[in-house]
Amino acid sequence: MTGNEQTTPSLVIFDCDGVLVDSEPLSLACLTAGLNRIGVDIDLDTVRNRFAGTSMVSIMGHIERDYGIAAPAGFVDEVKAETLATFDRELQAMRGVAEAIRSLDLPVCVASSSDPVRLRHSLTLTGLLPLFSGNVFSSAQVARGKPFPDLFLFAAAQMGAEPTSCLVIEDSVPGVTAAVAAGMRVIGFTGGGHWGHDPGGADLSRAGAASIFSDYSNLSKVITS
């Protein structure tokens, strides 16, 4: 990419969970409790390290392959229902994110591993949905979720943007990996509650994030840096 393309993206693509809404501590806790109930010996830190930013389809495939436990009928729907109920009680938008997005004079959209119901539920609960004018894309719309590039490429195509002119805001290694594979510049966000273990975002940098930030008051600055 040229320097101009780096400083002036034609589209900013936001992940949702852990980027727009502080959902990961809630959803990962629900997932861990659910997996423990069906006999998977796994703790919260392992779930966070292995599965943050990935879809339930991918997660359950890993569980069956690595732990030899197939989810019983209805398990995924049960965990999703528990997660949404927890969101209703506790979910918050990231501090300052709404103001930061409103201040951008750039097209924006969302591209998330969450299923469409959870995705819109989260954005509606936190009042963020109107900021994206319906431009909200889910991994359910593509063949392969993150860490594959399909979702980001799909979002760019829907928005009429060239991948090389897009900037992605991500909080997970699979998400950063997907953005890099799509040929997009990616910035890592570590302001979510699940990033206490690595506030500097070393894992995201190793995966290919161009820079790291944790405070949305700095969004305009990091986008053009």
Rank of each mutant, 00 (worst) to 15 (best):
R185H: 10
V173N: 07
V180C: 09
P147D: 03
A209R: 10
S172Y: 06
P149Y: 07
V180Y: 03
A178W: 11
A210D: 15
G160I: 04
T177N: 05
D171V: 04
P199Y: 12
K146G: 08
T190Q: 12
F148P: 00
V180Q: 02
L167C: 12
G191L: 07
E170G: 01
V186K: 06
H197S: 13
G192S: 15
G193I: 07
A156M: 04
G145C: 09
V168R: 01
P149I: 03
G196V: 13
F148G: 09
G208Y: 11
K146V: 05
G191N: 05
S205L: 15
R206D: 13
T190D: 13
A207Q: 05
W195I: 00
V168Y: 02
F152W: 12
P149H: 03
G145K: 00
S205Q: 15
F154H: 15
I187E: 15
F154K: 01
D203C: 14
V176E: 07
D198G: 13
F154Q: 03
G183T: 01
L204R: 13
A207P: 14
T177D: 02
V180F: 03
A178V: 04
G175D: 07
L167H: 10
R206K: 13
G201Q: 07
F148Y: 15
A179I: 08
Q158Y: 07
G175V: 00
A155H: 08
A156K: 00
F148I: 00
S211M: 08
A155I: 01
E170Y: 02
D198A: 10
F189T: 03
V176L: 07
G208R: 14
A161F: 05
G192Q: 10
V168C: 11
A207C: 09
G188L: 06
S172F: 11
S172K: 00
D203N: 14
S205K: 13
G201E: 09
G191I: 04
A181P: 02
G145Y: 01
P149F: 10
G191C: 08
S205Y: 12
S165R: 15
I169A: 13
S165H: 14
P149D: 12
F148R: 14
S172H: 05
S211P: 07
V180W: 02
F154L: 12
K146N: 11
V168N: 05
A155W: 02
G188M: 11
A181I: 05
G183W: 10
L153A: 02
S165C: 12
V186E: 00
G183N: 04
S205M: 15
A156W: 00
D198E: 08
S205N: 02
E162A: 15
L167V: 05
R185L: 09
S165P: 08
L151E: 06
A157M: 10
D150K: 00
S165N: 11
A157K: 11
P174A: 10
A156E: 02
T190G: 03
A157C: 09
